[in-house]
Simulated scan of single mutants.
Amino acid sequence: MSTPASLCTILQHALSAGDQDALTDLYIGGTPPNTLRAYERDLIYITAWADAAFKKPLQWPEREDVALRFILDHSRDLRDASDPARDAAEHLIAKGLRKTLACPAPSSLDRRIASWRAFHRMKNLTSPFDAPLIRQTRAKARRAAARPNAPKSANPITRVVLEVVLATCDHSLRGIRDRAVLMLGWASGGRRRSEIAGLMRADVDLKNYDNDGLIWINLVATKTTEMGKTPKLVLKGRAAKALAFWIEMAEIADGPLFRPITQNDDPLERALSPDGIYQIVQKRIALAGFPKGFATPHGLRSGFLTQAALDGAPIQAAMRLSLHRSLAQAQKYYDDVDISENPATDLLG
């Protein structure tokens, strides 16, 4: 992954050029790609906010009054036209960095503060967010703006739903690709869209496919696993056939596994983006006749675990594929299964 220019700027310190390059390479190589992308987005947002609110660039270390203002600006609705924070918010909305004047989710504020603190650590500086008043204000703001957790997908894409969605995939190259994306995303444990988009041809092991029908998937890193420590995942049956067929028909010898398709039904050289995965799911959900907003790509993940619960699969077995690190997190999907559908209710027959 290429080093974001803005992160390189953050990493500047009183080091020799060689040491600086080595430190930058070490930091980038040791940070998950998803985290790097989040840092990049948050740095863009924070920089734009500081410019709009104070007409100044970020400082290192940042002043405590600036940190306090950031929390206050993101802890309430900005309906009052005379509110000084509203001008900065409208500036961010105009830049496409903020959606509305409503109070952002506490998790969004927490993530941006975590990134800002990380930027200070990169420069070996004390973060203003560690000051007692700032810490207390942040805790109060989080409690005041608390809201129920909304599911990442309105509905899980269970096996029944998936079958209907797969029926919309025709025999065009686009249909073959979408079928492989959906089946791999579901059957390999409910992969996140960034994980699907990030797969390379070299991550797919077909050497035993002809003999045993198994395809091994090597994810370099996920949200819950470290670089190089992600266990291999397996595809079998229809999912393995769908993936092997896509690789054969698109002639994917190396490079990105999933790619955009031209209007002439030809694959491009570049990788399909995470947003491209989102668009595939949305398009196929709509073609299958489900209402708008019925499910998002996370529905593949929640659907896999929900189906595992419906089929009576031990949660530990499901987690072996989903790669959930937290038993409590995975248990939520099992708890969502209606008690009347629980296989344990049929033990007596």
Rank of each mutant, 00 (worst) to 15 (best):
S16C: 02
N211K: 13
R69C: 11
E195A: 06
P32G: 10
L347P: 00
S107T: 08
L101S: 02
S115F: 04
L58G: 08
R301L: 03
R86C: 06
G189R: 11
A240G: 11
P148F: 06
H298I: 00
A308P: 07
L323K: 12
V337M: 12
T222P: 06
F129D: 10
A286T: 10
Q329Y: 08
I339E: 14
Q12R: 13
R37H: 14
G289C: 05
T31S: 10
H298M: 00
R135Y: 00
T224L: 07
G228T: 09
D265M: 06
S273A: 13
A308E: 07
S127N: 12
Q279N: 14
A105G: 09
A328Y: 13
R301S: 08
Y278Q: 14
G175I: 03
D210P: 08
L300T: 05
D170H: 04
W186H: 15
N34H: 14
L182Y: 02
A22R: 15
T47H: 04
F70N: 02
G255V: 13
L321P: 06
I10A: 13
E248M: 00
L347Y: 09
A81I: 12
L97A: 07
M249W: 01
R86G: 02
R111N: 10
T35N: 07
K152E: 09
M1Y: 05
P148V: 00
R159A: 12
W186G: 13
S108L: 04
G299Y: 03
P4S: 01
D336I: 10
S6T: 11
H91G: 15
A50N: 12
T224K: 07
V164I: 12
A239E: 08
L199P: 00
A197P: 07
I28R: 09
C103Q: 09
R191P: 01
N124E: 14
P128G: 02
P84W: 11
S340Q: 05
S127I: 14
A271E: 10
T137N: 09
R320Q: 14
D336C: 11
R135D: 01
D73V: 03
P57D: 10
V66G: 02
I46N: 03
I113K: 04
P84M: 11
S340Y: 07
E90K: 08
V337Y: 08
P156V: 06
A94E: 04
K241G: 01
I247F: 04
R121S: 14
